[in-house]
Amino acid sequence: MHLVLFIIFGGLCVAGALNLLFQRHPINAALSLIVVMSSLAVLYLLLGAEFLAAAQVIVYSGAIMVLFTFVIMLLNAGSEERTHGSKAAYAIGIPGAAALFAALAYIFLSNSKSLSTAKLGDYIVTTSDLSRVLFRDLLLPFEVTSVLILVAILGAVALARREH
C-alpha cells in the first residue's frame, strides 16, 4: 500500500518537475511546480511526518505558489522566448550536473551507515514529538533561523523602498 502510493506520487513528482522544465508558458510552469510540491507533501506523509506534510501544503502549495501565480498574472508574462543561450551552459551544463549528482550520490552512499535509512511504514511522528525536538533539543538553531528569515524580509523591504 505504502509502496504503491510512493510510486504513484513519486512518479507524479518527477512528471511535474519535467513538465515544469518543458512548459513554455510561465503559468503552466508554476502550476506544475504546485503539483511537485503537493506530491512531495504526500511523500512526507508516507514517511510519517504529518505536520511537515500539512505545512508543506499550507505554506508552499498554498501561500508561496499563490504569490508566484499572482506575480505572473500581474506581469501578464507571455510565452518564453527562445534564445541561443550561452555556449558555456551548453558545454558544461550536462557534465556538470552529472558530476554534481555523482558526487552527492557517492557521499550519501558511502556514509549510508551513519545516516539512518528512511522507511515507508505505519509509524507516525506526531506534532508534539516534532515540537519537542524543535523547541527543546534544537532551540538555538531554530531561533537563529527565524532571525535569519527576519533579516531577509527586512532586506527585501529595504530593496523595495530604495526609490523613496
Binding site: A54, V57, A63
Partner: peptide, 12 residues
C-alpha cells in the same frame, strides 16, 4: 491543518 491546507489550495 488539513482543512486549512485545502482552503489555501482552493484559492487557485
Amino acid at each position: 491543518l488539513v482543512i486549512l491546507g485545502i482552503t489555501s489550495v482552493g484559492v487557485y
